[in-house]
Design a protein around this nucleic acid. Structure first.
Lengths: 208, 208, 208, 208
DNA sequence: GATGAATGAGCCTTCATTCAT
DNA sequence: CATGAATGAAGGCTCATTCAT
């Protein structure tokens, strides 16, 4: 690993063949990568392992991704897609309270589905500085939070920008930890996260 | 990277020379490791780099630590020592509220002192399964929280064990993120974390 | 995968000029190879790059050439064809002096037309042991030189075989170097090469 | 091979321990590289092959050279050292004619000692653009030639700069070719090269 | 025939660890 | 004890070649 910290080393897929056979191979590779991450952790996450797990050759991995980081980025994008959509949606909720609840819900659901994978990708996401300087999930969630906070009455006693950052960190921290502990009950976790969120904002704890 | 995932590889220092020259060398090595981590990140954190930064030979590193992971573990222990002591202390505070505040305070202070180092070590800590299965910081903070929660009136509506886990995760998440953002004002951060903590527990936000 | 789904009526003549079609493809591929060599050098000279540059698939390259070396050999043959013809011609010149001049002329002209390509192919030619053990150009030029030397009066004081080898080497050396230096004036170079050639043979420097 | 054509990717040795054990290892590695080049050619010239042939591990190769190219550069420097010294010396010869003879002599001697190695290194030398833009040998020989040409009477009818380039090319071309042909008689070759050189310069062929 | 996705041997390089001095 | 040269397994990646469509 050469100390490439601040460059932009091709994180985009090499081809984007949303068609026929190739798309299938891409899916296979991504799922292979996900499985390797879940089963062997970051230490076992090698391009050769991914290829083997996916049942393709290393060459095929590099046919579609210019490098390992690009593969990781693509996996992040894939895993994150639903979450981002849900979060975007939440920003337009009827009330900010409802929006917050929806964001928490979506994040919890996302982390519950493949906890180890989600956790490891969170780590990789912050290690590589994907995208501009902030990855898509962070941007999406923080953005949605920001929008919701603006509509809150009374306005929270903390600057919105900062509050969004705090809430995102708090949310991710709790949810990742729950995943690591093996917690599987989404509803319960959701309630607890909301206690912290509403408490932070000085709102009365909303009933379920 | 050797695929040692499931073994129990000697994480304790090889010698425990609380004396003379050796202790000094150990300190030098640990500080070298800390500096490397801060300056070159996880990618640049190699045993040779540590030795060079510390002004000793690689051989000396292996004289005092059975392997890289042991070195990391020792660094974690060193960095964590003060925090753990402070947290233990907090458990005996006059009121649980005060105890909570003290824990938050200590954690914030700890993260603020060497933010990048603290962040990277947090990550390594959870990557390696240090100690029995839970590292010392986690145990200390969770334990202290648990003790304090038991004294709380009214008792929080969440099982104490779970609450302790949540609060620890929330705390660490917020503090790490603040460090990553480059935040340097400890007091402000402390207040905000407390809002979340007290909110989670259903307590009225305590004034500063 | 060309969407050739609808089979219309047979619009093509029954008898395809398969020959000329193939020949055209071969030409395209060879020119692709030449372009890649000129633009990306030996390092960028890959079969995939050639195919892409030629606008055909890799498969097609292998349809016409059994391997990369065969492709290179064919390119050498193509590039060398005119030169060889000119050199053969020169062997029959009225006087040996004129013949020598013609050979030099042809070689200079050849190298000037596509200098980088000529240089790189010279290298590849000697790397691969093309042909029997001596490639066509070497054989042609050396042969012509040999014939001319036999007619020279007075006979050069060096064995003809050896002299032919020397002159060829000298010629190629000077011409390649001129190409590498970016020299573009054929006439001047020709004169200088002739000085060396005639000097080597102990002949008086012939005027232009 | 990524098209790194114009960068300066560390061509200097990593360490320059002209002492004790290390120097011996460096020598061993360089000789291994030379042997591999002679025995297996450019195609078989891999860092692993070099290490194996030298009886050391790949790691040791990289301990002393930052990369394969640096190794090649060092080998070129080693092989070229004597030649360069001799050529430098020749520039100060009593008469320019004598100087020319000495340069030819040294070059012939150099190429005769390990012909295949010299040939392959010549190629590599021009492939990598070692040093500033011109490699040491080229600089040394061209420089010496330039100095000598300036002292020549009558002055050659060609611009000195150009003449130096031509003579160097002619020299190298003839000598490389002789090596490739397996010629082993240094004196004879030397005489023939001198015929071309003196002829080029319009000087009377000097007796041995 | 043409296509281009797929293959996999093999290359360069790194780095945790050992051991002779 | 300290040193640092030496080791070599393992990782990321390329590219000539094949073959199902």
């Amino acid at each position: 690993m050469t100390g490439r910290t601040a460059r932009g080393p091709a994180l985009k897929p090499r081809k984007n063949p949303e068609q026929s056979r190739s798309a299938e191979t891409v899916r296979t590779i991504l799922e292979g990568a996900a499985r390797v991450l879940e089963e062997r952790g970051l230490a076992g996450y090698t391009t050769n392992a991914v290829a083997e797990r996916a049942g393709v050759s290393v060459g095929s991995v590099y046919q579609y991704f210019p490098g390992k980081e690009a593969l990781t980025a693509a996996l992040v994008a894939r895993e994150t897609g639903l979450l981002i959509a849900a979060v975007r949606d939440a920003a337009g909720a009827a009330t900010p309270e409802l929006g917050l609840r929806r964001i928490v819900q979506a994040t919890v659901a996302h982390q519950m589905s493949r906890p180890r994978l989600a956790l490891l990708l969170d780590r990789e996401e912050s290690r590589l500085q994907l995208a501009d300087s902030l990855d898509a999930v962070t941007r999406a969630i923080s953005g949605a939070l920001l929008a919701l906070l603006g509509r809150l009455e009374p306005a929270p006693p903390v600057e919105a920008q900062v509050a969004a950052g705090d809430l995102f960190a708090l949310l991710r921290g709790m949810v990742d930890a729950a995943g690591e502990r093996g917690e599987r009950a989404g509803d319960a976790l959701e309630q607890r996260v909301l206690r912290a969120v509403f408490g932070y904002l000085g709102l009365p704890p909303a009933g379920p």
